[in-house]
Structures are given as structure tokens and as C-alpha cells.
């Protein structure tokens, strides 16, 4: 509370001069001064704290990406989270790049640097389809390969977002992470809980890529495309379903491309095996 002393000094000064506190001139000057003080204070605070805030956001993003791929350990992350997350990220996320709607890698021709990590998906989604850029992260752990896509959609009160990781077949979900800005605690905000997110593991998006992951009313029968929604959080649950459908539709180009590449590769390796 360093500004307290400033204010105190001002109080004393005005007392000594005995100015009419309710006069118009005084009121105008007073409001100008106080607004300037506040503006300067807030600007300083905002500028000074920006780097620390940005770092926190980056760490959180990395943590979410790792969590989606199932590569974080809660206990280990507790002590010196920053270092742990950065190390794990460098270890597992072998590649990250940007693809367009047809699944081709976007080569950086623009002045704006397009790297997958700092790409703001929120801004991409409002562009015309041909210009949309989508981030892809690839997590490699020995033989295991997982593809991580970013999601962004609407909840009840505000935006919801998240990540989804696919197994190598690009059909089976390996994990999801959801987050939200202002959903109701106890209702819509339950999408951030592990219980809700765990349900998505092992679910399949269709062979025809119609992406029918359905978040349905709890209590119904479940199959490989459905998960239980949150009672009382219907609109947020539907938002999650819609987000998955909308975003994965955009990734369809990439998914199809990777699928055919994977098939080619497996045929090639089969051929080689036969030759040997």
C-alpha cells in the first residue's frame, strides 16, 4: 500500500491550504488527478507483471497438452512445477506444426510467425475456412505416438476450450482436457473434472469421420460414441459436444491425410518384412 502515503500527504496539503472542497474547479482537478494516479498505477502493475503472467499461461498450456496425452504426474508437478512441466514437454512433445484445412503443413511465409504453440485458435476459427490454421502437437513416447489437437467452443456463459489426443489410428481418443472461463461451479464447470474427462478415453470417432461423440443425458446406455453429460449442466455439455464436432471437422483433412500415410507406411513395412 505504497500509495497510502502519497494520499496522506495530499490530505495534509489540502488541509493546510484550506481549499473549498466542494467547488467546481477543485472537483474537476481532483477527479483529473485521481484518474491519472490510478491510470499510472494500473499501467505500471500491468506492464511489470506481464512477463510473469505470460509464463504462467505458457506453463499451463504445456501442462494441458501433456495431460491430454497422459504424460503428467500430479504428484511430481507439485514441487517446482515450472521446471517439471518444461522438461516433460521437451521430452515428449517431439513435434508441433500448423496445418491448414486440407491437412497440409503451413510453411511460414507470413511476417506473423505461425508456430503451433503460440497460435491463437480462437482467432483462427473466425477466419474463412481456407485461411484457418490449426495447431497439431505430436507426442512420442517410445513406440507410442499420440496426436494432440486444440479445441475451442461455446459454453453457457462464456468460451470453453480444451485439447484432445488421438492414438496413432486417429480414431481412438487417448485423452481430453477441457477448461472454461465462467461456467457455473457445480454444474457446467464440472467439465473440468477428471471424472467427466476420463469418460472420453477410448471413445471412437466414426470411420466416416462424422465425429459423433455425443454427450448425452446421464443414466442412458453408453456405447463407443457416447459419454454421460452433466446433470444441471446441459448447455455446457452440449457445448462440449458441439466443440468436438466443429473443431474435429476442421481437422478432418489432416486426419484423413495421416490415415492414408499411416496405411502406406504399414504396407511398406509389410512389404519389407516379406522381402526379408
Amino acid at each position: 500500500m505504497e500509495n497510502n502515503s502519497d494520499i496522506k500527504n495530499k490530505t495534509n496539503n489540502t488541509k493546510r491550504k484550506k481549499i473549498n472542497v466542494n467547488g467546481s474547479a477543485y472537483t474537476v482537478i481532483y477527479s483529473v488527478i485521481i484518474v491519472v494516479i490510478v491510470a499510472v498505477l494500473l499501467t505500471i502493475a500491468s506492464t511489470a507483471l506481464k512477463p510473469a503472467q505470460k509464463l504462467n499461461q505458457e506453463i499451463e498450456k504445456k501442462e494441458n497438452i501433456l495431460k491430454t496425452a497422459g504424460k503428467t504426474d500430479k504428484e511430481k508437478a507439485k514441487t517446482d512445477k515450472e521446471k517439471y512441466i518444461s522438461e516433460e514437454y521437451a521430452k515428449y512433445i517431439s513435434e508441433s506444426f500448423v496445418v491448414d484445412i486440407n491437412g497440409n503443413k503451413v510453411v511460414d511465409t507470413n511476417v506473423n510467425k505461425k508456430d503451433a504453440f503460440s497460435l491463437e485458435i480462437k482467432r483462427e476459427l473466425i477466419k474463412p475456412e481456407a485461411e484457418i490454421c490449426l495447431p497439431v502437437f505430436i507426442c512420442k513416447d517410445g513406440e507410442q505416438v499420440r496426436y494432440i489437437f486444440q479445441l475451442h467452443g461455446k459454453g453457457l456463459w462464456g468460451p470453453i476450450w480444451g485439447y484432445v489426443a488421438f492414438e496413432k489410428d486417429l480414431n481412438t481418443i487417448a485423452g481430453v482436457v477441457f477448461d472454461h472461463e465462467s461456467e457455473t461451479p457445480g454444474l457446467g464447470a464440472e467439465i473440468t473434472t477428471e471424472i467427466f474427462q476420463k469418460q472420453f478415453e477410448g471413445k471412437k470417432i466414426d470411420e466416416e469421420n462424422s465425429f459423433p461423440i455425443i454427450v448425452q443425458k446421464p443414466g442412458g446406455k453408453l456405447n463407443s460414441h457416447t459419454v454421460d453429460g452433466i446433470s444441471g449442466g446441459t448447455i455446457t455439455s452440449r457445448g462440449v459436444q458441439q466443440m468436438l464436432a466443429d473443431n474435429l471437422k476442421l481437422y478432418k483433412g489432416f486426419i484423413n491425410k495421416m490415415k492414408s500415410e499411416n496405411n502406406d507406411n504399414s504396407i511398406e513395412t509389410n512389404d519389407k518384412n516379406q522381402e526379408q
Binding site: N4, I7, K8, K10, T11, V21, N22, Y30
Partner: peptide
């Protein structure tokens, strides 16, 4: 803060 400022604040604002 308001208590410190209380004698300086113009009534109208």
C-alpha cells in the same frame, strides 16, 4: 484509502 482521503473528496463525486 477512502478514510485517508475522506476530507479531500468533493461531495458531488
Amino acid at each position: 484509502i477512502i478514510s485517508f482521503l475522506r476530507n479531500t473528496i468533493p461531495n458531488s463525486i
